[in-house]
Design a protein around this nucleic acid. Structure first.
Lengths: 149, 149
DNA sequence: CAAGGTATTGAAAAGCTTTCTCAACAAAGG
DNA sequence: CCTTTGTTGAGAAAGCTTTTCAATACCTTG
């Protein structure tokens, strides 16, 4: 059992402080909700979930907070579809890749150690610092394949 | 030496015909220019290049044609940045992945057979049909790493 | 613990990219 | 060559995301 380096809240708070920013209620509310969503989400869904829970957080604040959550490694952009970005929280989860069906739009997750290996080796060979990786397979799931092509 | 299955123009024409669409001058002009750009491009750059060469093709036509080029496998969406999508032509090129520096925004290409392997195995295991894959490493290049973090 | 300096917030406006509308045009078959 | 019908271009419209600015709240200092 490994010692966790801290909850997402501690990490975010530390990050905010280290940057000389202010740890506001809105930022924490957004962070908490992001980690309550155990699936991909977009700004609109996050906004509506907060409103439904009675929180009055503006979309502007969401748009301002997401880049911070990404910068400190808690959240990741997953894919851009239907004219807007889709996100997921990644802290506490194993690295994983995505399969997206171009027909029914279903998204499946999977993981494969070779992907991190490739990134690690690239980093070593070219002296870059890896912040994150993204692997996507686009195609047709077995169900959609059967229905047509 | 392998026999090429046809030029991008033949492929596109066949694809258009097979779908019962019309092979127009605009579509071919756009296709030709896409294959003249040996780098990533966005809609604006493509549009300006065509205008500078004296072609009068509207942005609407570019926005309508790109999905067709993608559907027939000649072009790929590479990444979404600065509020818009970036593309590249892929026909005739080996599959490759991208490293993007989060600081200077430089993009490097590299390839690794393991990536296709991962996709192939996923496809086999789950019975999906792979249309394309995308692997991205985001981080800081060696130069930007030295300058700061 | 009060006060001041200043980053942050919300609401609305603005900025952009991408899509849609519709009349004029052109591809393709007969 | 004529007809049919998909396509084009220009501008309007539709989003998503960012910016603006006055009011607010964080947080440091005294």
């Amino acid at each position: 059992m490994e010692r966790s380096p801290g909850s997402e809240i501690e990490i975010f708070r530390d990050f905010i402080k280290r940057k000389g920013l202010r740890y506001t209620q809105e930022r924490e509310i957004i962070l908490r909700e992001v980690f309550n969503i155990h699936d991909h989400f977009d700004v609109d869904e996050l906004y509506l979930r907060l409103r439904n829970k009675g929180y009055k957080v503006s979309k502007a604040s969401i748009y301002r907070t997401l880049p911070l959550l990404i910068e400190c490694g808690l959240v990741q952009e997953v894919y851009h579809e239907d004219g807007h970005m889709h996100y997921e929280h990644i802290y506490g989860h194993e690295p994983h890749a995505h399969f997206r069906c171009l027909s029914c739009r279903r998204v499946e997750e999977f993981s494969d150690d070779r992907l991190e290996e490739v990134a690690r080796e690239y980093a070593e060979r070219y002296g870059v610092e890896v912040k994150m990786t993204r692997f996507e397979i686009l195609g047709y799931c077995s169900a959609c394949r059967g229905r047509e092509g």
